[in-house]
Design a binder for these strands. Structure first.
Lengths: 338, 338
DNA sequence: CCTGGCACTCTGTGTGCCCGAGTGCCAGAC
DNA sequence: GTCTGGCACTCGGGCACACAGAGTGCCAGG
């Protein structure tokens, strides 16, 4: 196993590289960190670290930079999560408290995260399937056309227009609305299919078709792939390191536009705490030179969605993880209040 | 005034420059366009065009590139709007028709526009103030807490949580809901303030405070600055010309993140047709090297919002204008149907 | 096991050079 | 008067070259 000092050398390399964005050499290391040994010794340690695959040289006779594996070790063993300072916490809370609705909460969260971490922020809307139903509203738009509005406890609102097979009376509509709400209000979305299963039975034969249509639209809204939404922001931060890779930034922007990719990315994080995926650990190719720091957030104990940031593998992991965790915590509070 | 041939020379310069992305010289011009005159003659014309400020040289002894003023003349006088081909029209329609709700319509529109024009697309949500009310829903979340849900004819849904000064009974709530809807349903949002003015009068004294609170929240939702939302996409297209300006792309991304800036940008376009703002015509500094092509769209005759694209001044204006116009037309149709 | 010294290997930068594209201008042709 | 061909001039881009600087690996000695 690696000796204690070698781990310190690795930590120093990561910190310096993150700070300077330049390969770090043995001499600079001993100058900037009091390791108590000479550059030559550090060189030996570096050779060992390179042997093990934690660091690499961009080319002969340049300094070393950490590999994905090096960052992984750093994140897992060498660095903690840097907690936010009290003033920062207050700033977060103030910023989020002014939000008027869910869209606003999400928009503010994205802006906040992007600003705090100076990276690209991604926030998923609370998942329908992990929320509970607050209310289902049915509105007659036309004799044979109904609008279905779904409201969750997290403040999310979904609407669908349903074309009915036959005209549907206002009385039947009110009836359906009442029965539907009495069954599903306050219940979890995952239970809804079971709860409404036999609902059509209580209706006249002529209305039954319409009821089924409405219900199947309701159920469709809950299909996993369709129901997820997210918001991203802070893409301008990508240009901060565009000097190295004007051509690395493009696949990242492309990946960010593919909501599916992002959702999968966030979804992979199962850990209750902050999850970090580094470089090639990300399945998507365009994100091979980036790291994703994500965490679940929720109004109560359970996570209803995820949020996180996407940045270069060369990022300030402790600070980023701290910011992500803190923001998730406060968003959860805000959601619980409303 | 400029002779007919000089205008043709300008048109040729714009077309070639847009195609090749390189300054265009007199010789290349005569080869690629049958102007019927020699390079020397073209040189004289170019000198005149430069004198007038329509074209410029990046440096002595390079070809010419159009100035903002040159593009302006090109757009106004020398080029039309290129209509979409029938297959393209069908593709647009098919793509938009699968949308399930307004968010989906907007998201698809952004994707479509970005893809068609290969530029950054911006789509504004239908403005509340230019829509009509379909329904106002009130839900009791707690004895003294009400959720207000606002649904427009364009499918937009806004929600707000209202904290009441005193507990509000379910009966009063139903009463308020009924009276509110009977007054505002089907009416334009701009008329709402007037229509609900004397509504509190019809209530018991103890409920009047709550009614006022609810109404003022309703009116706040309509305040111009807050009620506008938009979605952008296709930012990856910015990297297509990042080789010239890895440093021009940053202010553009920054400008795109400032919703306020974008809204102002779109708002400036008052023209009923497609509006083009070129380079320095854009008030925002970060967008000085970009052009904005925008147009209003709406479900009926009147525009309820704007959409458009942002790209380099060196863009295919006829094609872009054609795409923007066509998309706006189909989005209007889709909105009218739902 | 650590250290100082030494030879070696790269990259980045700056210089000088040449080539080519493109221009402006002028004298002559239509 | 307008167009054309010719000519001298200018400037940027590409290439070869040399050089300095940073960093390494290795080895012998403490």
């Amino acid at each position: 196993m690696l000796s204690e000092r070698r781990l310190q050398v690795l930590r120093a390399i990561v910190q310096d590289y993150v700070g300077t964005e330049e390969p770090v050499g043995s001499k600079a290391l001993t100058e900037r960190h009091s390791l108590g040994v000479s550059p030559a010794t550090v060189r030996n340690d570096m050779a060992a670290l390179e042997e093990e695959g934690f660091i690499a040289q961009p080319h002969t006779s340049a300094g070393r930079i950490p590999t994905d594996k090096g960052y992984r070790l750093f994140v897992d063993k060498l660095a903690g999560v840097k907690p936010m300072s009290p003033p920062e916490r207050r700033a977060i809370q103030n910023f989020l408290e002014g939000a008027v609705d869910l869209d606003d909460v999400v928009a503010r969260t994205v802006r906040l995260l992007a600003q705090l971490t100076r990276q690209v922020a991604v926030v998923q809307y609370p998942s329908l399937t992990r929320s509970t139903v607050r209310h289902v509203e049915l509105l007659a738009l036309a004799p044979a056309r109904v609008m279905l509005v779904l409201i969750t406890d997290t403040g999310r609102v979904e609407q669908r227009v349903v074309d009915c097979p036959v005209p549907f009376g206002e009385a039947s509509l009110a009836d359906l609305r009442a029965r539907l709400n009495s069954r599903v209000a306050g219940r979890r979305f995952t239970d809804v299919p079971r709860l409404v299963e036999d609902l059509p039975d209580g209706f006249e034969a002529e209305d039954r078709g319409t009821v089924c249509t409405v219900l199947s639209t309701l159920l469709e809204t809950l299909v996993e792939e369709n129901e997820e939404r997210l918001m991203i922001g802070g893409t301008a931060n990508l240009t901060r390191f565009a000097h190295d890779f004007p051509l690395t930034i493009r696949p990242v922007l492309e990946a960010l536009e593919e909501q599916v990719v992002l959702l999968k990315l966030l979804g992979e994080a199962q850990d209750p705490g902050v999850t970090v995926r580094i470089g090639h650990e990300n399945a998507h190719e365009g994100l091979n030179s980036t790291s994703v720091v994500s965490v679940g957030y929720g109004s109560g104990g359970e996570a209803v969605a995820k949020l996180g940031v996407v940045g270069p593998t060369r990022m300030d992991y402790p600070g980023t993880m701290g910011a992500v965790r803190a923001v998730a915590r406060y968003v959860g509070q805000i959601l619980a209040e409303s």
